[in-house]
């Protein structure tokens, strides 16, 4: 029976406006959601279990507010939910990945799914980083998985088209959209999730080697030029050539 771990992260609602206060992003009024690609990761993990068997644990690293996304995952049908408790402060990638890898190890993970990139960092670092920490292979941006007992066949974009890859477990797979719309919770699931208990993982704290200096709003673009009517298309083409030098 394979232990499947899904890494999920709570991020600011993608519609939220990010205000900068005293040189830092002010997230006090933000609505928090499960990072969109992590919903695909959860969906693929549940399909994996349905196809082959196994248990699915949703794991997050974050402060207590993150229990919300774990309960949401529980309502979808994961077996266990676990959190590495850290405070709101910034953690750099090295500490996040080291701690997630430790927790995956102590959960006995034989298969890890995560999002291809988190909506806040847009980095795509965590999956391959955790894999390297564990000494596992990783396959990124996966759009389709055929599940086997000890190996997977996956589809992944490449510069020439779609590549069909084969890889043996254990492996980290980072998930893109593709395996169908993520399922929604039903009433029974939601009731069950209410009573679910979050397993607080005990892992060794790992220091990173960066610290945050501050945040800033991106410099405002100078206002553009607007033209009413298609007769101005030639003017814009001329500007693209002479002013912007891009064609």
């Amino acid at each position: 029976m394979v232990e499947i771990v899904v890494l999920i992260k709570q991020v600011p609602d993608t519609n939220a406006k990010i205000e900068i206060k005293d040189g830092k992003a002010d997230l006090s009024m933000i609505k928090w959601i499960t990072s969109p690609y992590d919903e695909y990761a959860l969906e693929i993990a549940l399909q994996h279990k349905e196809a082959i068997g196994g248990t699915v644990t949703a794991l997050t690293l974050g402060p207590a507010r993150c229990d919300k996304i774990l309960k949401d995952a529980k309502a979808l049908g994961v077996d266990n939910i676990a959190r590495i408790d850290v405070d709101e402060d910034y953690l750099d990638s090295f500490s996040v990945q080291s701690m997630l890898a430790q927790a995956c190890k102590s959960l006995g993970a034989g298969m890890i799914y995560c999002g291809k990139a988190a909506a806040d960092t847009n980095a795509g670092s965590t999956g391959p980083g955790v894999a390297e920490k564990l000494g596992w292979p990783s396959i990124a941006n996966v759009t389709h998985v055929d599940f086997g007992e000890s190996s997977l066949e996956l589809m992944q974009p490449s510069s020439e088209g779609q590549a069909k890859m084969e890889v043996n477990l254990p492996v980290v797979v980072t998930c893109d959209k593709g395996m169908g719309e993520p399922r929604r919770a039903n009433v029974k699931g939601i009731m069950m999730a209410k009573r679910a208990i979050v397993d607080l993982m005990d892992v060794e704290n790992v220091e990173g080697n960066t610290s945050v200096l501050g945040h800033a709003s991106p410099p405002a673009k100078p206002p553009g030029k607007s033209f009413e009517g298609s007769e101005h298309v030639p003017t814009v083409v001329k500007l693209l050539r002479d002013e912007a030098n891009v064609i």
Partner: peptide, 18 residues
């Protein structure tokens, strides 16, 4: 580097190799 989908820029200080 940009964060929050480019809605903010974050500056970090290096305290070691990166």
């Amino acid at each position: 580097h940009p964060i929050y989908s480019g809605k903010a820029h974050q500056t970090v200080v290096l305290n070691g190799p990166s």
